[in-house]
């Protein structure tokens, strides 16, 4: 049932959870590339400059994928 619900949801108007996942994915890729090229951790600002998304929004997106549960939890608890 969870699968079906998720399927339906993903095919409706884009949910925030989905766009957050995209942002997080790009941030993770940018971080890995930076690590490979510079042998050190990039700062949030360097990632932000790379993918053209604000620092705060990147932080939010990375949090969202870390706790996927909170995004799928029903609202009425």
């Amino acid at each position: 049932i969870g699968e079906i619900r998720r399927y339906l949801r993903d095919n409706n108007a884009i949910r925030v959870s989905r766009s957050l996942r995209d942002t997080a994915y790009r941030a993770i890729c940018a971080r890995e590339l930076y690590l490979k090229q510079n042998q050190k951790e990039p700062s949030i600002e360097e990632i932000a400059a790379e993918i053209g998304i604000g620092k705060e929004d990147i932080v939010y997106a990375l949090d969202a994928i870390q706790s996927p549960m909170s995004l799928y939890e029903p609202v009425y608890t």
Binding site: E41, P42, S43, I44, K55, V59, Y60, L62, D63, S70
Partner: peptide, 27 residues
């Protein structure tokens, strides 16, 4: 409420972003 835990965490992390931390420091 449990549902507010992640939002509070995100708010703090977004504020912290002004110090230009690494992803690990934020975590």
């Amino acid at each position: 409420r449990p549902c507010n835990e992640s939002f509070a965490r995100v708010s703090a992390a977004a504020f912290l972003a002004q110090l230009n931390p690494t992803v690990e420091e934020v975590a």
